[in-house]
Amino acid sequence: MKKLFLIIGAPGSGKTTDAQIIAQNNPEEIVHYSTGDLLREEVASGSQRGQLINSFVSKGNLVPLEIVVETIVGAIQRAPKENVIIDGYPRSVEQMEALDKVLKDRDDVQLVSVIEVEVSEQVACDRVLGRARGDDDNVEVFKNRMKVYLEPLNEIEAFYNQSNLLTKINGERTIEEIVADIEAHIRTKL
């Protein structure tokens, strides 16, 4: 059975970097995927699902939830390791519910933990604007991304808390401290 770990956090919380480092530190046991990368890989594969995804993305449309969830679950099934970290998912209540519905019908993948990397809006903003990787790294775009992140957060937290799956990690420390805490938490579930 595959064990799934989700890492969520605000833009600039460091969730992707944290997940990458943990997977690098544990190459025998853990693999890391980002949702965007999974969708791009599916398109690049030329598969039927990839063509379907491309038909939405190429027109600037959102990929339907069912397809996103099927892509994620398919990647988990094919993962070369038993333990899979996915960062940045779920981003909405609908995404959370869709994943929960699919996982309830499966006995080969188990959601083991949802880890929230907590940072203040100010710290997140300073980090995003400090890295300035592209046109979308400006105050206006950051505020919108933060709003999109925060709107469903209480409901997502409540849902995973009720299932005793949510763990919060202080993301306002050194990357070494944050990674050590997340890694220690994951190790308790392996």
Rank of each mutant, 00 (worst) to 15 (best):
I76A: 07
E116T: 05
N138V: 04
R145E: 12
I76E: 00
Q110N: 13
D126P: 02
K189P: 01
F142M: 00
L52A: 12
R187T: 11
P80T: 08
P80S: 15
P80R: 08
D37M: 08
G50A: 11
L99E: 05
V102Q: 08
A158H: 11
V31L: 01
S92L: 00
N25A: 09
Q20T: 11
A98K: 09
I53M: 10
V112W: 02
I53P: 04
L165R: 03
V43G: 11
S45Y: 10
C125H: 09
G171T: 01
Q24W: 08
N154C: 04
R145P: 07
D108L: 03
A98F: 05
T35D: 01
P80H: 13
E121G: 06
R187D: 04
C125G: 08
Y160N: 07
N61H: 12
P152I: 05
V84L: 05
D87A: 03
E116D: 10
V109L: 00
V93L: 15
K143F: 04
A44T: 09
L153F: 08
L62K: 14
V119Q: 00
I30T: 02
G88W: 02
N144S: 13
G46Y: 06
Q24G: 09
N83Q: 03
S120W: 03
I86G: 05
D107K: 04
G12C: 02
A124P: 00
R133D: 08
G134K: 11
K101H: 13
F56I: 09
I182T: 11
K189V: 00
I85T: 10
F5T: 12
E29P: 02
R49W: 01
N161D: 11
L166W: 10
V117N: 12
D137T: 10
D87L: 04
K143I: 05
A98N: 05
D100H: 13
A158K: 15
Q162N: 13
I76V: 15
Q77H: 07
I186D: 09
L165D: 04
L111I: 12
K104C: 09
Q162D: 13
A124Y: 03
A44Y: 04
N144D: 14
I175M: 14
I169S: 02
S45N: 12
N83Y: 05
G88S: 04
N138P: 02
L62E: 07
R49Q: 10
E140Y: 02
L165Q: 08
L190Q: 15
A184K: 15
M96K: 09
L62V: 01
Q48E: 15
E157Q: 14
G74I: 08
R187W: 03
A10W: 06
E155G: 06
S92H: 07
E66D: 15
S58I: 00
T16G: 15
A132I: 05
E157D: 14
L99F: 05
D126A: 10
K59G: 00
F5H: 11
F5V: 14
D18Y: 01
N154G: 09
Q162Y: 07
K168W: 01
G36R: 04
F159N: 07
K147I: 06
D108H: 01
G171R: 00
R106M: 12
K3N: 15
Y33I: 06
I156H: 10
N154S: 14
D105W: 02
E118N: 05
E29Y: 05
N144M: 07
V93P: 01
E41M: 06
R78A: 15
T16K: 13
E155Y: 04
T167K: 06
V43M: 14
